[in-house]
Design a protein around this nucleic acid. Sequence first.
DNA 1: TTGACACATGCCGATATGGACATATATTTG
DNA 2: CAAATATATGTCCATATCGGCATGTGTCAA
Lengths: 126, 126
Amino acid sequence: MPIWTYIWFMARAATTSDAFNAVAEPQRRRILVLLKGHERSVNELARALRITQPRTSKHLRVLREVGLVRVREAGQQRLYGLDARGLEPMHEWVIGFEQYWNENFDRLNEYVKKLQQKEHADGKRR
Amino acid sequence: MPIWTYIWFMARAATTSDAFNAVAEPQRRRILVLLKGHERSVNELARALRITQPRTSKHLRVLREVGLVRVREAGQQRLYGLDARGLEPMHEWVIGFEQYWNENFDRLNEYVKKLQQKEHADGKRR
DNA sequence: TTGACACATGCCGATATGGACATATATTTG
DNA sequence: CAAATATATGTCCATATCGGCATGTGTCAA
């Protein structure tokens, strides 16, 4: 039996499959922002985000599994720290579009005009 | 009844809720890449991605709803074009972490050394 | 008008999700 | 040792997802 038989039902990629998925959740993005510069304990994060502790722990678990955060044991606390290296691929991907969202109106208008001309030139092609 | 009662069951944010979610799906990222520079028809995209046409159409719908692509009718075809402006917020967010993944080895080593020292100082805790 | 083509959408099924809540585990303190 | 504290995890629930497949709609050409 071929492999794809088993992976047929892949309703949606797991949040732990990569940084893109992990970071799609707003609370997790907020956590990463809070972790800039210094470590924080779970309760500290929960209070800052105004969400429950289990909820915070679960989000941290996802971030841990994709390697965006590290944990350090400190007594009864777990101090979470940022490991932003996993975000670089996202940056690489998105920066590849910079020239397109920066297209100024002149170029955009020119582009549209060109399209219209082409449409005209083609006439009723095909 | 308070509003949160109705939004209690938010299993997972809709893929159409923002660019972050829309772009979490690999095929949709590939579509956007294929759309750099020029428009493409649905079948063209389907062939390039080697996926079925309905599947392609569904991904395009998501991208359309978050405003990352535009459609233009051309006879019986629909030509999809990139509208990358919606990616700028993603870039803004991720670029805020650049200094952290760029932390050079000196600082990283220093950090690790500090951790080890602390661990040592703690003795054989636990 | 009819057939061919391009595309969108509806239905079905299995899945992982995120939240609330309760509970388990481990550490510190008295 | 017991209570308190910090954290992780398991269960339950409603949902949206993505994939395949079938079908509907619209356009073009003969």
